[in-house]
Design a protein around this nucleic acid. Structure first.
Lengths: 243, 243
DNA sequence: AGTTTTGTTTAGAGGCTCTAAGGAAACATA
DNA sequence: TATGTTTCCTTAGAGCCTCTAAACAAAACT
């Protein structure tokens, strides 16, 4: 039976791919990004180097696939946080989602750093259609959808169109179209302002650009959240104390 | 005469070091960070690879030295911008310095990216005392000194100490001590909040983390400046139009 | 049973970092 | 001026990497 054996092959291939990713991740965590080489990954799983080229056509492609994995894991974590607060207020839900993001970042520093200070920046894997790109979209969507929800139920204040710089307005309009017009350009701009602050802070934390002064950035992060809340018309609430 | 010939040797050595840095920079700009290898740099200047090990004991050390170069160049640019506005208001001076930073970043994307998304993150060159570390200090100092000046002539509002999270207060106090007590901890915190926003935005721009929506970040940067100004008790002024 | 597809292996070309050993020039000194 | 020393640079090579090519085993299809 063609279908069954194809299935079986597929299963084996999938298992191998999973093992490759797992080996790569182990190497990343234990020996850093530079240690994730085709040869080392193969060695880790008792194979000889060139065999991996039957699964990925280059090291960059492997890196991109692993990155997409991490992205998806982060996205799933965010969705779980969101769902755990499905019946809370939008403010509490968005705060929980944001905190889940930082929590994943600091509990998975190697993975987060790998994704965001990617060793493979402008090359192959950032083009539309790549696994990495698609995973990034889904990630972003978790926040976007909550802001859309917010916008529809309790619209936050936005600047007048004429107060936005022309080039900014054009770019916001393009993006608004790209997300299916779920937000008007001005609301897109507010969303992105918040996003930049949140995301920027995490990137700096993970790139250790603030080490020279702050080692514990949790209160800085909370302050950032507190700052952002009014922009989205939300009421800040401190995190639930550890239980 | 011993002194003269030693001088001569020193001069030659310095010239070679300069040529090494220049070759490395050319490679960085034209072929990206990965192309800056010991071998390629040597080849670029008609030498054979191992010769470079008479100047730097490892690739990492060369990378660190070049990074420090870039840092110093950026710092000099900032100082020039500051000095060009020596007689302007503190607000105008600080805005000019900030804009000079972004200007250097976008006119030298390879160098800025090299410095901030450093290919050599936690390793050797980030320890205190390294060229890279010292250069980073001088860089930071350009902004710090202006904020100190501001604090002394027109103190900006700061949170009450009891409004800062305890761990934050402790960290701010340490840093305040490190800069010779020129700012009280609360003012340190305000300074750093601004710094994080400015610097974070530039890092994200240069890491192309915002490409998915904004390609021209100039207006976003201006908006960030406008946002920061009141925090430091300054009046925002738009940039002088290009002449 | 024979053919194709798939997964793997070894061999190897060409790159990299970095060490080791040797030669040549410039300098210091008798 | 002749001799020793320091400095700079070379080639050789070990060991890592990516990636290609060719050979071979095994499973799947016909």
């Amino acid at each position: 039976m063609a279908a069954r054996t194809t299935d079986r092959r597929d299963r084996l291939r999938r298992a191998t791919v999973a093992e490759i990713h797992s080996a790569a991740r182990t190497l990343l965590i234990t020996h850093g990004a530079a240690a994730v080489t085709i040869n080392a990954v193969a060695r880790e799983m008792g194979m000889s180097g060139p065999a991996l080229y039957h699964y990925y056509s280059s090291r960059d492609e492997l890196v991109g696939a692993v990155t997409a994995d991490f992205f998806r894991e982060l996205t799933a974590t965010l969705q779980a946080a969101r769902d755990a607060h499905a019946s809370s207020s939008p403010a509490r839900r968005l705060l929980a989602t944001s905190r889940a993001m930082r929590n994943w970042a600091i509990t998975h520093p190697a993975e987060f750093g790998w994704v965001f200070a990617s060793p493979i920046p402008a090359s192959q894997e950032r083009r539309p259609g790549s696994p990495r790109y698609l995973a990034g979209r889904d990630f972003e969507e978790v926040f976007l959808e909550q802001v859309v929800d917010l916008w529809e139920t309790a619209p936050f204040p936005v600047p007048r169109p004429e107060d936005l710089a022309p080039s900014l307005r054009a770019q916001a309009r393009d993006y608004a179209a790209e997300i299916g017009g779920r937000l008007p350009p001005e609301a897109v701009h507010v969303f992105l302002s918040c996003w930049i602050r949140l995301y920027g802070l995490l990137c700096m934390e993970v790139l250790k650009q603030l080490d020279f002064v702050y080692s514990d950035l949790e209160p800085v992060f909370e302050e950032c959240l507190r700052d952002i809340c009014p922009t989205l018309g939300l009421e800040y609430e401190p995190p639930a104390p550890a239980r």
